[in-house]
């Protein structure tokens, strides 16, 4: 584990943690433009530090996240994290990003490929830009792969059926696009799984009622019954597992343009992540 000090609650209040985070962002792999304040995706030290300070609080004190297999992440150069995803708020993504930023020896800023509909959601869109997350369009994705960033994708995607607590940790079929990029740009894949995320927001049922950019209106035991308070996630215990990097590009360099082959590789990855997840949850595959 890195040099993350053991912060007390008061450190979050008096700016110590924010300073620590800002420092880590400045020393991370983010390349700022000439005037030094923003990178090409709109990452801003000040704005990102504010948000990551809050996330670090959630990470340390609320969800009490444990990282397993941090050594499997590349210290530098490209890497693609492929993870399972719980519905509604991308708390899992935020926790993965926070963990990597504060716990790695040399900090790295993760670039999660997010659904474009995020940019239609007030405040979330701004947070997404300031923390350097990336809208999933070809040009952007090509850029993060070319830059050799640490990229995070949730390939079950927005097309996956809405989860509920009755089918939690069900891993939908993966999309293909991310694998084509990984093969083309010779990027190692780090299979990742997150547990605890689905208990944080227990969706009973998702209603098809688009609101403020969200696709479904989730009904949880407390939302919408308690109003905005109902959006507060439960303090479930999070565990994040990073598997050993898989170098598909070594054996399948020329297969990026062969959709059938890509499907096979993606299905193989799907099975590996599924068994990681089953093992982490202690359930039989």
């Amino acid at each position: 584990m890195g040099d993350m000090p053991d912060f007390k609650i008061k450190d979050f209040m008096n700016g110590t943690v924010k300073e620590f985070i800002a420092d880590r962002i400045r020393n991370s792999d983010v390349v700022f433009t000439d005037n030094g304040e923003y990178d090409e995706f709109g990452t801003e030290v000040e704005g990102a530090a504010d948000f990551f300070t809050f996330l670090t609080f959630m990470y340390k004190k609320y969800f009490r996240v444990d990282l397993h297999g941090l050594g499997n992440l590349p210290v530098e150069g490209p890497g693609l994290l492929v993870s399972n995803h719980a519905p509604i708020l991308p708390i899992d993504g935020m926790m993965i990003g926070t963990g990597i930023l504060i716990e790695m020896e040399k900090p790295r800023l993760i670039r999660a490929i997010v659904n474009r509909s995020i940019s239609d959601i007030p405040f979330f869109s701004t947070l997404m830009y300031r923390t350097g997350q990336v809208i999933g369009c070809d040009e952007n994705v090509r850029r993060v792969f070319e830059n050799g960033n640490l990229v995070l994708v949730f390939p079950t995607g927005a097309e996956g059926r809405p989860h509920s607590i009755f089918n939690k940790y069900h891993l939908d079929k993966f999309t293909l696009g991310f694998m084509e990029y990984a093969l083309r740009h010779r990027t190692p894949i780090i299979p990742t799984c997150v547990t605890g995320s689905e208990e944080a927001a227990m969706t009973l049922v998702g209603i098809d009622l688009p609101l403020a950019g969200f696709k479904h209106l989730p009904l949880t035991p407390i939302f919408p019954w308690l109003g905005p308070l109902g959006l507060v996630p439960f303090p479930s215990k999070f565990d994040i597992y990073f598997g050993e990097p898989i170098h598909y590009y070594k054996d399948h360099a020329g297969d990026a343009d062969n959709p059938e082959k890509v499907r096979e590789i993606v299905d193989d990855l799907h099975d590996r992540i599924k068994s990681m997840l089953d093992k982490a949850l202690g359930r039989e595959s």
């Binding site: 090409e40 995706f41 509909s117 809208i135 999933g136 040009e139 952007n140 850029r143």
Partner: peptide, 9 residues
């Protein structure tokens, strides 16, 4: 547009 790249070519 909401899905514009960060920098348009």
């Amino acid at each position: 547009h909401m899905d514009n790249p960060a920098l348009i070519k």
